[in-house]
Design a protein around this nucleic acid. Structure first.
Length: 585
RNA sequence: CGGGAUGUAGCGCAGCUUGGUUAGCGCGCCUGCUUUGGGAGCAGGAGGCCCCCGGUUCGAAUCCGGGCAUCCCGACCA
C-alpha cells in the first residue's frame, strides 16, 4: 500500500470541532478519519476505514483461530423474530424501528441472538453437528437516548458478535473460555490497556458474564478493582465484605425513643442528635436509612413494597439492586402517590421495628448485620429511636448488596481495599444458556434419539468503539499515536517541499512498499511545518523525513511514540526501516 | 424525559444588548509571484435561505411569539 497525500481524500482540521469533548472524538475528526453524518452516526473516510479494517482484521484472525466461522446476516430484520423472545418490547425505545410499504414492522438489528439461533435451528439437527461457533462483523443500530463522545457511543456502530452453540453446560463453558482467550489475544495485539471485570448480564439474560474494559478516565463504565489481588468487577456486580463491627447486643441499652422534630433527612437527624447531649457524637454512619421500593417480579403487574436498609452515610444503588441483588425483578423508588396509598409508612421516619408486624419484607445491606446498633426512625413523624439493635429490635428478612460501592470498601476475595476507576466497554462475553434456544426450540437429536436443547453463548466486541478507545489511550497534545497493528500505515515519508526531496520521498516510499510495508508519502506542495504537524496528528508510528540532509546523503528517522529522531544514510534507510518494523513483530 | 447552552461560509467564531444601506474575522479553498526543517509572505478571488415559520417596524442576523435541530450535564443504556 502506498498512499500519496497529494491525492488522498483527506482534509485535516487545525481546530477542534465545537461539539467534541473527548480526545478520541477531537482527534479522529481533526485527523480526517471520520466525519459526523447525523447525531451518533459517522462516516469513515479513507484513513479511518483503514484503521477500522485493521481492528477488524485482528478480531477476525483470532476468531478464526478458535474455529469460529464468519458469516453476514442482515441488519434489517422483521419484527417477528424479536417478538417471540420479547425483545421487540423489552428493548423499548432503544430499537430503531421502521415500517415497509405494506405496513409491516421492521427493525435495525441491535444484536442478533434471535437470528443466529434460528439459523442454527434451520440448518443443524444432529448432535454430530455441534458444537459450532458463528460470528459476523456488522453495523449495529441502537437509538441511544443520548449518543455522545463521538465514536465512543454512537447510534450506528461496528460490532463483532459471535454465538456459540453447545450440547451441554460443559461445552458452553469451553466455548466461553475459548472466547475469553481469543479476546485476550485480540486486545493484546491491538495494544489496548484493559481489565477483565465480572459483570451482570442485564437485558441479555443468562448467567456468567465478563466485560473487557479499556481503561480510560473518559470511559462511561465504572468498575471496581482490588489494590491487592486480581479481583475486578463492574459496580453492579461487585461483592464486598464488611468489617465486623457488631457490639455485644446484651451491652446495648434498651431501645430509646427520641423527640426529633423536623429531621426527615440524615443530615438534619445527625445535627439534632449531636445537639441533644446524648453522651456521644453521632455520624451519618451510625444511622440506619430505610428506603422504600416497589419491586415487581417479571411477568407480574402488581408490585411488592419492600424496605431496604443501608447505613445513613451511604446511598442505595438502584441499578445494583435491579441488575444484581434483586434481578430479574424491576425496582422503582416510592413516589408521592405511593406514599399516599401507604399511610402506615411514615415518610422520613421509617424504622424497621414495625415492618414485620405490617407484612413488609426488610432487606438489609450486609453492613446492617445482626447485632449492630443504630439510630433509626420510630415510625412517628418527628421521632427517632436510638439503641436499635438488628436482630433484637427488628428482623432482617434477607441481606442484599444494596449500597453504592466506594473506594476503600473491602475486597470479597482477599480483604484488600478496592478502588474505583472508569473504563470503556470494548468486549462482553456471556454464557447465555437457553433463553433463546428455548424461545425457538433449538434442539439437536442426541445419540439416543432424544432431542437435546442447545445452550448458547454470546460474545461482542465493539470494533468501531475500539478505534476510539485506542485513541483515548494513545495520544498526546499533538495528535494520535497509533499502535502499529492498527495504524493507517507503517511509515509516513515526508518530502519537505522541494521538488527533489519529494521525488526522493516517493522513491523511498515505493521501495518500502515493495518490501510489503504500508506507506503514506507526503508529496504535497506545502511547507515543512504543515507536513510535520499533519504527520503528528495522523499518528503513523514511524516517519522518514527527506529534507535538508539530502545534500549530505542523509534522511531523518522519527518515532512517533517516543519522539526519537536519528539521521541515517539515504541508501540504507529502506533496509533499516524494514528491519526495525520486522523486529517489532 | 429533567436541567443548561447554542444555531451566522467547509471548519472555528464575532456581530445581536442599543434594528439602518455592500454581514465580518481566523483557518481552509482558488489564481499569480516569492518562500521551503516546525501550522509561510504579498497581491487578487470564490463561497451566506444569518435554523424554520409567523409577528412588530419604513427597515430585522439583531426585537417579540411559536416551532425545529444540535451539543453538554443528569436519567437511561450489550
Amino acid at each position: 500500500m502506498l498512499l500519496r497525500m497529494s491525492t488522498l481524500f483527506l482534509r485535516t482540521l487545525r481546530e477542534d470541532p465545537a461539539d467534541a469533548e473527548v480526545p478520541s472524538h477531537k482527534l479522529l475528526v481533526r485527523g480526517g478519519f471520520v466525519r459526523r453524518a447525523a447525531p451518533g452516526v459517522y462516516s469513515w473516510l479513507p484513513l479511518g476505514k483503514i484503521v477500522l479494517e485493521n481492528v477488524a482484521r485482528v478480531v477476525r484472525d483470532e476468531m478464526n483461530a478458535i474455529g469460529a466461522q464468519e458469516l453476514l446476516l442482515p441488519a434489517l430484520l422483521p419484527r417477528e423474530y424479536y417478538e417471540s423472545t420479547g425483545r421487540w418490547t423489552d428493548y423499548g425505545d432503544l430499537l430503531f424501528r421502521l415500517t415497509d410499504r405494506k405496513g409491516a414492522d421492521y427493525l435495525l438489528g441491535p444484536t442478533h441472538e434471535e437470528l443466529f439461533a434460528l439459523l442454527v435451528k434451520g440448518e443443524y439437527s444432529s448432535y454430530k453437528d455441534f458444537p459450532v461457533t458463528l460470528y459476523q462483523i456488522q453495523e449495529k443500530y441502537r437509538d441511544e437516548a443520548r449518543p455522545r463522545a463521538g465514536i465512543l457511543r454512537g447510534r450506528e456502530f461496528h460490532m463483532k458478535d459471535s454465538y456459540s452453540f453447545d450440547l451441554d453446560d460443559d461445552g458452553l463453558r469451553r466455548s466461553y473460555a475459548a472466547h475469553r482467550g481469543a479476546y485476550i489475544r485480540i486486545f493484546d495485539r491491538l495494544g489496548v490497556d484493559y481489565r477483565i471485570v465480572s459483570a451482570v448480564s442485564g437485558a441479555m439474560g443468562g448467567s456468567a458474564s465478563e466485560e473487557f474494559l479499556a481503561t480510560a478516565p473518559t470511559g462511561e463504565d465504572t468498575y471496581v478493582s482490588c489494590t491487592n489481588c486480581d479481583y475486578a468487577a463492574n459496580t453492579e456486580a461487585v461483592r464486598t465484605v464488611v468489617p465486623d463491627t457488631a457490639a455485644d447486643p446484651s451491652a446495648v441499652p434498651a431501645l430509646l425513643e427520641l423527640d426529633t422534630p423536623d429531621t426527615p433527612t440524615i443530615q438534619s437527624l445527625v445535627d439534632r442528635l449531636n445537639a441533644m447531649d446524648l453522651g456521644r457524637t453521632y455520624t451519618a454512619a451510625d444511622t440506619l436509612k430505610n428506603v422504600v421500593l416497589k419491586v415487581t417480579q417479571p411477568g407480574e403487574t402488581k408490585y411488592e413494597v419492600v424496605v431496604v436498609g443501608v447505613p445513613g452515610d451511604r446511598d442505595v444503588d438502584l441499578k445494583r439492586l435491579a441488575e444484581s441483588s434483586l434481578a430479574p425483578a424491576s425496582v422503582e423508588l416510592f413516589e408521592a402517590d405511593d406514599w399516599a396509598e401507604h399511610p402506615e409508612l411514615v415518610r422520613g421516619y421509617i424504622g424497621p421495628q414495625v415492618l414485620a408486624g405490617i407484612g413488609i419484607r426488610y432487606l438489609a445491606d450486609p453492613r446492617v448485620r445482626p447485632g449492630t446498633e443504630w439510630v433509626t426512625g420510630a415510625n412517628r413523624r418527628g421521632f427517632h429511636a436510638a439503641h436499635v439493635v438488628a436482630g433484637r429490635d427488628f428482623a432482617i428478612d434477607a441481606q442484599v448488596e444494596a449500597v453504592e460501592v466506594r473506594a476503600g470498601d473491602l475486597c470479597s476475595v482477599c480483604g484488600g481495599e478496592l478502588r474505583i476507576d472508569r473504563g470503556i466497554e470494548i468486549g462482553h462475553i456471556f454464557q447465555l444458556g437457553r433463553k433463546y434456544t428455548d424461545a425457538f426450540e433449538v434442539d439437536a437429536l442426541g445419540p439416543d434419539g432424544k432431542p437435546v436443547r442447545i445452550t448458547m453463548g454470546s460474545y461482542g466486541i465493539g470494533v468501531s468503539r475500539l478505534v476510539a478507545a485506542i485513541v483515548e489511550q494513545s495520544h498526546d497534545d499533538r495528535g494520535i499515536i497509533w499502535p502499529r497493528a492498527v495504524a493507517p500505515a507503517d511509515v509516513h515519508v515526508i518530502g519537505t517541499g522541494k521538488a527533489d526531496q519529494v521525488e526522493v520521498a516517493l522513491r523511498i516510499g515505493e521501495e518500502l512498499r515493495a518490501r510489503g510495508l504500508r506507506v503514506i508519502v507526503d508529496d504535497r506542495k506545502a511547507s515543512p511545518g504543515v507536513k510535520f504537524t499533519d504527520a503528528e496528528l495522523l499518528g503513523v508510528p514511524t516517519s522518514v523525513v527527506v529534507g535538508r540532509g539530502l545534500a549530505d546523503g542523509v534522511v531523518e528517522l522519527r518515532d512517533r511514540a517516543g519522539g526519537e529522531r536519528s539521521e541515517v544514510p539515504l541508501d540504507s534507510v529502506v533496509e533499516l526501516v524494514a528491519e526495525r518494523i520486522a523486529a517489532e513483530g
